[in-house]
Design a protein around this nucleic acid. Structure first.
Lengths: 249, 249
DNA sequence: AAACCTTGTTTCGTCAGATGAAACTAATAC
DNA sequence: GTATTAGTTTCATCTGACGAAACAAGGTTT
């Protein structure tokens, strides 16, 4: 599974996987965790016990289920946000939202998925809502393609050969789309991932040229036709460049 | 060390201990971590590698040191704050600060220490500053004694027999103070833990009678004489009762 | 320049201890 | 009643976590 030097500790990896279950669900029973992580229930029991003893998870007295504990809160309080894109780029994202009056989202790649790590919603009554923390596949959506367009070959192979790759998406078409995106410098999607929504996305590069994230503007198809989205591109690229400069490598 | 059923996994415990190092310090080198945790450096190396692979820590490219990674941020975003005293009690603490115009702090016990999990500072120019997340010994300070006054016998034994117990504090005096606090319903300290500051503290109980936290008002001794602090007590107790009702057990 | 730290990384033999199967309990459904 | 499910404990097996030691890469002192 992993490619480089195997200097990891299995039990710890498993425990961390258990913690990560709580990104999707705030309350989980032991069996649910065992299913999600595909671990033996005895193992889950022991690992959960350890996590609980250290305060990383706790049991809800009502539901008897597990949830994240105060240690996470404690750690996050001391988290250094000074170089966190989600914090760093927020003001620029708000400016972008104010200019375009559509929802602005920021995505990073995580394994074979992407995560929305920050979002600023349009102020209009009809708008794209964009919960922070949401995870999506890398197969569809403007930001997915931006993230993949500048990914290295190895990663692309991995994503394309993922058994979770949706049957309906042709890999060759996808790969040629990525090429187009590298030429254009932006990606557009119309009702690709979600009915009724369209999005334009551009890459954010650090000064050293490393892909940091994808910046997207999305809204209802009624307002976001292709022509309008192309008009957004220069402003989007400008914002992305500003953001890229803020990253210290 | 542990008292009850040993259902914990050592390597995971150690990995979590490493994570907890970052509560005190935002950047740490491998050797520093090895010292703090008293672990073999090979072990630290492996555990850190695992934590890094999963995104729980990352290396600062500048300093080469480790710091908390995006996974903590990801988890904390999904942290359920609905029953977190630090969030739940904040409005009531702000009201208290507005009424008394002194710094209001909220403490919970964690092992043989207490942690300030929330604070609202006085608006006066000279005021007690109270960083959230700070840890203090349970031997001194008004809130320490409140937390210990209602602790069970076993825990009291543990705290009293802690090798870290400061030499200057007489255990018998301490225990009799706890008794007094249970009778009074509040604790006062004047320049006990920190020169120039005084504090009054009261317990917060859930409806089921469980001790949740200690609520304290503190300020410079110039303004906080004993008489004034006693005047504060009814208001403090009222606030603590309000807070206690908010806790669902 | 060599000698000497300090920090981080890799190797490797050993055996503690993490593991999974299975048994068991307790609770809820049917 | 039986069946089902979630959670807990036990235990024999053998993996894989462990620490010592060697090694590499800077940095500092002599």
């Amino acid at each position: 599974m992993s490619e480089q030097s195997k200097t990891t500790v299995r039990s710890v990896e498993r425990a961390l996987d258990i913690l990560l279950c709580f990104v999707d669900e705030s309350q989980l029973g032991m069996m649910e965790i065992a299913e999600r992580t595909k671990l033996n229930k005895s193992t889950v029991f022991r690992l959960l016990g350890t996590l609980e003893a250290k305060g990383f998870v706790k049991r809800d007295p009502q539901t008897e289920k597990y949830q994240l504990g105060f240690r996470i809160w404690e750690l996050s309080a001391n988290l250094d946000h000074s170089d966190d894109p989600a914090v760093l780029f927020l003001p620029e994202m708000e400016r972008l939202r104010d200019d375009l009056d559509e929802t602005v989202s920021l995505y990073i790649r995580d394994g074979r998925e992407r995560i929305r790590i920050q979002a600023v919603e349009s102020r209009q009554a009809i708008r794209r809502v964009a919960p922070v923390g949401a995870r999506m596949p890398l197969s569809v959506g403007a930001s997915s393609k931006v993230l993949m367009a500048y990914a290295d070959k190895e990663l692309l192979e991995q994503v394309l050969s993922d058994p979770m790759w949706p049957g309906g998406i042709d890999r060759d078409v996808y790969v040629s789309q990525l090429k187009q995106i590298r030429e254009d410098g932006y990606a557009i999607s119309v009702e690709e991932r979600e009915a009724g929504t369209a999005a334009v996305s551009v890459p954010i590069f650090s000064r050293a040229g490393r892909l940091i994230a994808a910046l997207a503007v999305s809204g209802p198809v009624s307002r976001m036709n292709v022509k309008k989205m192309i008009q957004f591109v220069p402003r989007l690229i400008q914002a992305a460049e500003e953001m890229g400069k803020m990253v210290r490598e």
